[in-house]
Structures are given as structure tokens and as C-alpha cells.
Write a protein that binds this DNA or RNA. Structure first.
Lengths: 124, 124
DNA sequence: GGCTTTGTGTCAAGCCCTCGGCACAAGCTA
DNA sequence: TAGCTTGTGCCGAGGGCTTGACACAAAGCC
């Protein structure tokens, strides 16, 4: 599949962190599996409008975490043992859901309001 | 009420941005209304473990947006005309919900999976 | 073998953010 | 009036991030 990575300019999060996080999530969610090849440094950097070193840093850190394997001339691929540890996919989604609900509650929204808002997004 | 502001150390977002966003959300959500007083600079800075100038910057930017009014010696309060423009409270929540659902979908989760995950967080 | 691709490393420069401290001005309070 | 509180401004120092450029090494391709 064609990798869809985006950068949000108004987001104060450093670009290399945005790339790093998105790739990690894609792997944990299973959209990127072991052996899948990532875009070359220069190509991804060009698409995102950032310097080569910026994307390089994201790749490097993910490799240090064991999620990617990089070889000169061979490109960067998802590591063989990068599969989420037993239900990581579900945990990722539930973490996102818990985070969203918690934030809404601290802002004073009731559970009913939250459910109504979600109903507009999901064909229940 | 006692203001509950928190800083996430592992979050690469600059502290002054975190404070600024949380306060803006609290006002939009209606938990902070016109005339409500915010903690003094030095107190909030001490609680969060940041420098005075850091919190000061958050206050200053929010004042420039018209959400706060600051006076030397008088403290900082929510501006009189700071109420969200007609349904801002609802829009805030729906924006959060839309963002959450969109992110989950781009990670390959089906609507059913999303609903199930939310069901664990909300007593439906 | 020769060329291209690709990841890695370095470097200087600049910008943004934070810190800690200090001084100052304006409002509030006793 | 006198003192405290509070927001504002400035400063130098330090750290993190990005940029742009260049060189290098290893793998793949013809």
C-alpha cells in the first residue's frame, strides 16, 4: 500500500517525532507488517518537505527500538519481530479511546454528551 | 473550583503551549466562565515546576486572543466576552470525537472495533 | 565492473523554548 | 500611607530541533 504520512504545521510537536509516532502506530496497528518496505529517506523527506536528517532521525530511533531494520542501499523495512506483543493492536485502540474519553470528562462533558457526539461520527 | 492543570514531561509539546491549550479548552467548554480568576503566575509556575516566564507567556498569548484579561496587581481573569461563540462547547467535543474516529480509521480499525473499544470506556 | 540507490555521519548556522534572576509598575489591602 | 501581591519586561545562558550541504559505505541493478 501507499504509505500515508502527514505533517501538521501548526502542531508544535517536532516533525521527527510526528513521523516516528505515526510509523510506530502503523506497525502496532498491523497496517505495516514485517518485511514491508518504507519510503527511502530522500523521497519521504521530499514529500513531507523536511530535511533528510529529520526523517533519518525518525528511522534511526525506530530501529533502536527494534521496530525497523535499515541497511545502506537496501532501504528500511519493518523488522521481523516487530509484531505487536499479543494484542497490541487492541491495546492501541483502547488506549486511544480511554485518552479521548478522559479528556472529554475533564472538560466537564457528560457521558451522554460524549455518546451523542460519537453517534454523529459513527453509523451506529 | 480548583484548577486542574497538568504537564506531561514526556510530551515534546512546549510547556507554555500545553498550558495555553488546556486553559483555552477549559474556557471553551464552559468550566471557566467570564470573571473567573486564574492562579497567580508564580503559584501556577511553582505547582507545574516551570519558570514564571513560561506561564506568563501562556497568559499573555491568551490575552491577545481575547480570552483573558490581565492587570498588574489584579491578577488574571477570564475575559467578559470569552464565552464560546454559539455552541462552541458542542463544537469542541465534536471536534475531539471526529479527530479520534479519523485517527482510528486511518490506522485500519473498523467502525465496529471502535464502538467496542468505546463501550469499555462508557457505560452505554 | 560501473552506476545508481540508499542509509549514515558530520558540520555550522539559525531558530525556538526554557531557565533563573532581577527590576519595575500597577492594583489591592491593612 | 506603607507593604504586599501580581503581571510585565529584560537579560544571558543553555539545550533541543531543523536546515542545507557534503562525504562516505553498503546494497542493488545493468
Amino acid at each position: 500500500m501507499t504509505l500515508v504520512l502527514t505533517l501538521q504545521p501548526d502542531d508544535p510537536t517536532p516533525p521527527y517525532q510526528q513521523v516516528r509516532r505515526q510509523l510506530a502506530d502503523l506497525i502496532t496497528a498491523g497496517l505495516l507488517g514485517p518485511g514491508d518496505r518504507l519510503p527511502p529517506l530522500r523521497q519521504l523527506a521530499g514529500d513531507l518537505g523536511v530535511a533528510v536528517g529529520t526523517v533519518g532521525r525518525a528511522y534511526r530511533e525506530l530501529e533502536q527500538e527494534g521496530l525497523l531494520t535499515s541497511r545502506r542501499g537496501g532501504g528500511t523495512r519493518v523488522a521481523a519481530h516487530a509484531r505487536a506483543p499479543e494484542g497490541g493492536r487492541r491495546q492501541l485502540l483502547e488506549g486511544m479511546a480511554a485518552e479521548f474519553v478522559a479528556r472529554a470528562r475533564t472538560l466537564g462533558f457528560t457521558d451522554e454528551e460524549i455518546i451523542v457526539a460519537l453517534g454523529r461520527q459513527l453509523p451506529s
